[in-house]
Amino acid sequence: MTTSIKKLPDIEQVLSGNGACGGCPATMALRIVGKALGSNAIMLLTPSCSVASMGMTPKLGYNWPGINICFATAGSSASGITHAVEILKEKGRLQGELPTVFSWVGDGGTYDIGFQALSAAAERNDNMIHFCYNNEAYSNTGVQRSGATPRGTFTTTTPTGKRQPKKNMALLMLEHNIPYVATATVAYPGDLYDKVVKAKNIPGMKYIEILAPCYLGWQFDMPETVQLSRMAVKSGAWLLWEAENGKISFNNPSSLIISGKKGADPVDEYVMKQGRFNRLLKGPDAESRIAEIQGDIDREIAFMRERAKITI
């Protein structure tokens, strides 16, 4: 059973008064992650909205020791910290329980510039949790495309719409043979919480990706973050799944879509609610563009359904 939102612990690791936008999905997600991780953790951040909004030196708006690192280095920096705390503990120079080492990184720092170092850390199976809060663009620098930006999306570097589909980063991480991979999103906080608790107790590399609808980049009304997150899941544009030791299972409501018990909502409503899509859907080619977006989603659902059957 998924933990109910009412049962989440009271502990708050995201302190009040940070500089994020109202309704920021990244901050919302981090708040839930904090409830699962507790305070005995070391946080790494790459340049992103979560850094820009975390407050000024020497403190930070998150109640962990936090280190800002070079953009490409989440994987390698977290490896350095995790090995350091382990050997210092072995040598008796660090007392108490080992802290959880986790990176809090955007899709830019995960899919693109940080891909190489993250892949290497995964291959080494170094002990860490890599969180990717995925707002499907480089929001901090003013909304440019990333490898997580879906086809048909307006960004400031794809002004006529991105022509390539996004990559399936969570699946790529799974193919590194790491012990735990999960996807989540802010509309399902209990699901996210449970996945983080699970990851925290598994040694080795864990990857959790959280879809984070960002009103600024996606162009919807600020109070509708959670609604957009839910629509993404219900339309199948975002699938909730986890994989322990390589075995994929889907979580509700994505499991219903995968099993065919319940069809995915057509993507139209989800797309038309967002300026990043609908501003490009005013011309005569609107229908074929929507069909293309729908095609990418359908293909991904079909592919993940088949991929999950491979359990060797």
Binding site: N40, I42, V51, M56, T57, P58, L60, Y62, G66, P99
Partner: peptide, 11 residues
């Protein structure tokens, strides 16, 4: 973790 301060944060 006993002293949660930031490192190389924005100045």
């Amino acid at each position: 973790p006993a002293n949660p301060s930031s490192f190389s944060n924005v100045t």
